[in-house]
């Protein structure tokens, strides 16, 4: 049994592919100044719209080509990853902490705490999320921290709903009752007995939420509501690429591929982690 488990775990290609891409992108973002071949902001009109390396007219050192201002696309994508990951981690973690805590309390205690929390969630979910985000950023002002705050404020309900349902079904299990009989307090049971059993879902949702945060940030910078336009973000690069799609398709295609790969990896990584964390599925 143990050996089979090890084999199955070691061979989960989903986990390694997704985790590999995320690690690569993360390391590139962290060490962007060392890795990026060019200055992502340096414009050079002599070098505008260079194609990627395998096409005629490519210049060495500009692997994925340049945009219409002659800025190196690869360097811009690498630096854009910094903002994507900062937003992903900060926003998803905040949404996760708030939503999971409330969901755990609502699901485990039931009664009036559950009624209050569920009512708030219902009201929250009545707002369309993208409009909600644009509205919030308009109110909070553009900037990295308001984007993070907006995503957290909108998406904590996603955690709250799922964790509430799971905590509720765990709370009905006999092991919770046995803990009561043995003399454990309610808060202790919630944290020591129930929380570990909902943790795999929290982890999967957290990873999924990071992917969502990356997309939302991209959408917000696409409509120019994210951070200042100087710093490259994947969304702003996509927005620029859209304008020059006929002259330089690569400026649109590469950031899109990067974005999609990253979002997919986050969701797949979450699912794979859940399967690995969960003692029953494992």
């Amino acid at each position: 049994m143990d050996e089979a488990n090890v084999a199955r775990r070691g061979l989960s290609p989903r986990l390694w592919l997704a985790g590999g891409w995320l690690l690569l992108a993360l390391l590139a973002a962290i060490f962007a100044p060392l890795i990026a071949p060019q200055d992502p902001l340096a414009q050079d009109l002599m070098l505008e719209r260079l194609p990627p390396f395998w096409l005629d007219g490519a210049e060495p050192g500009y692997w994925l080509g340049t945009d219409s201002l002659g800025r190196d696309l690869l360097s811009r994508l690498i630096f854009g990853g910094r903002i994507a990951f900062i937003v992903a981690f900060a926003a998803a973690t905040s949404a996760c902490l708030l939503g999971s805590a409330l969901g755990l309390i609502a699901g485990y205690f039931g009664g009036w705490p559950d009624r209050i929390i569920s009512r708030i969630v219902d009201v929250w979910m009545a707002f369309p999320p993208v409009l909600f985000a644009i509205l919030l950023v308009a109110v909070l002002g553009t900037g990295l921290s308001s984007v993070i705050l907006a995503i957290a404020i909108i998406d904590w309900t996603r955690f709250c709903r799922v964790i509430r349902a799971e905590a509720m079904s765990q709370a009905r299990m006999d092991y919770v009752e046995s803990a009561r009989i043995a003399g454990y307090g309610r808060v202790g049971i919630m944290l020591r007995e129930v929380l570990p059993n909902v943790l795999p879902s929290v982890v999967a949702l957290l990873s999924l939420e990071m992917g969502i945060a990356v997309i939302v940030e991209a959408i917000l910078s696409f409509v120019n509501l994210s951070i200042s336009t100087d710093d490259p973000t994947w969304g702003s690069i996509i927005a620029e690429g859209r304008l020059s799609i006929h002259q330089a398709w690569w400026v649109l295609v590469f950031p899109l591929i990067t974005l999609i790969l990253t979002v997919l990896s986050f969701t797949q990584f979450g699912e794979a982690l859940k399967a690995r964390f969960d003692p029953v599925l494992r």
């Binding site: 299990m173 006999d174 092991y175 009752e177 046995s178 009561r180 009989i181 003399g183 059993n197």
Partner: peptide, 22 residues
């Protein structure tokens, strides 16, 4: 709670759900 915890115990019907799976 203290009295029940100290002097009683339960052998439950379903031994699977009576143990914490994680």
């Amino acid at each position: 709670r203290t009295l029940i915890g100290a002097r009683t115990a339960l052998i439950p019907q379903d031994p699977l759900t009576a143990l914490n799976p994680s």
